[in-house]
Structure formats: C-alpha cells, structure tokens
Amino acid sequence: MAAFGGTDTRARKLRWSLLNTLVVVYALVPVLWIMSLSFKTPATLNDGNFIPREWTLENYRSILSTTEFLRALLNSIGIALIATAIAVVLGTMAAYAIARLQFPGKRLLVGVSLLIAMFPQISLVSPLFEIERTLGLFDTWPGLILPYITFSLPLAIYTLSAFFREIPWELEKAAKMDGATPGQAFLKVIAPLAAPGVFTTAILVFIFCWNDFLFALTLTSTERSRTVPVALSFFTGDSQFQDPTGSISAAAVVITVPIIVAVLFFQRRIVAGLTSGAVKG
C-alpha cells in the first residue's frame, strides 16, 4: 500500500514537473530569443541560431550612445516612478477607507473603480488626445502620468484593500487605547503591517506604467516625453539600409532585465503580498 502510494506521488510529481517546465519554457523562449538577438552581429542576425555564432556588444554600445534611447529611458523611469508614487499614496488612502469605514457612496466608489479597470483603453485614446492637446498636456510628463494614475488606481485599490482587510481592526483600537492619536496609530501600527502590501502594489503599478505602449504612443510626439517602449518602435539603423533589430533587442533587454531582477529579488514578498498571509495575530 505504502509502496503503491509512493510510486503514485512520484508519478504525479513527474507530471507536474513536466507541466511546469513546459510553461516556463513557453514563457521564457521569446525572452531568451530577444537576448540572443541582442548579442548577434548584423550579419548573423537572421541565421536562426539560438546561441549567437559571433558575440558582440555593439548593439548595446550603439543604443547607449544615442540620446534617443537614454532620453527615453529617463522619461520611462521618471514617469513610472512619479505615477507609481502618486497612485500608491492615493490607493492606500482609498483602500483604507474602503476596508475600514462605512460611508455613503462606498459601493459606488468600488463599482466605478472596477468600471475603470474594465474600460477598453483604446476607446479613450482619441478623446484623451484631444483633451490633452487643448490643455497643453500633450507630449509632457504629466500628460502620461495622469492617465497612468487613472488606470492603475483600481489595481492599487484592489490589492491594498485586500491587505487592509487582513489587518485586525482591534490593533488600531488597541493603539488608540495605548494613547496613540489616529495618525500615530496609522503610522506606527497599520503602516508597518501594510508595508508588504504597499510594496507589492507599488511593483505591480510600476510594471503597468513601465510597459505601457498605447498611451505613450498616442500622447507623445517627441523625445521630451517619449518612453522606451515607444522609442523602441521608432528605432532605425545607423543608415536606412541597416536592420535595427539588433538595437531594438538590446533596448528591450535593457528595459526588461531590471523588472525581472526586481521581481525575482522581491518574489517572496510579492507572493506573500498577493496571497496575503502576512498578518496573523
């Protein structure tokens, strides 16, 4: 019986490992392919080899020497950081209110934010374009930061309110009884407990802003505010006859790797955050 059970679990483990490997390979191959392309010379670009025959750093050197890419990188980082910071602060306050307070219009607020999350963004592109042109926001940082905040807030509110719901109400009461003002109770008790949730949310929002292509494409026109995903699509070779694929790949690697590293590095916190087992009395 025991032996039978043993082989059974071994077979099951094998099945799962196979399935997992399949999924991981499926997800990773394109990324690895891009990395491989970024290290190839123009001549071997289309040779179909997974491992480059000739390794080169030329692609990286070339993109990092153009202001086009560096400026876009700066835009991307700045816009994503500012949008993330604002969205997380607003989201924290909204989520706290939703989790803790009874107020008229609470259901409406939750409903509307859900609506925003589900709204097809493409349908808002032309109106936003017109509005921003009229207001002079077109092709500026705020012109991208504002829609990013709008569309990431529902995500922020949802993840964060799940977190706040996990934090026992009584801790806040206890802090008040211990002599804390509401502000102190929030800062000294609630905030430290919510930190993993805030952190998780910040990463998710940052990735959302960092990866956006649609708004960045339609609401910018120059290097002033163009972000990397869009800048990539405008890449041309050094001459019009040169294939820009190598540079595009190198740029893609440059913007993808930091995210992957961050996620791997903070993986445990994010997983803990998403599954919310963080707070247990």
Binding site: L171, M177, G281
Partner: peptide, 14 residues
C-alpha cells in the same frame, strides 16, 4: 487614561 485588554489580545505582530 484607561487601558484595555482585548479578546484577541490585539498584540502588535511586528
């Protein structure tokens, strides 16, 4: 200036 003991103890987990 009153202290309270809660049913759940409400200890600060961090």
């Amino acid at each position: 200036d009153i202290a309270m003991v809660f049913q759940s103890y409400a200890l600060y987990p961090h």
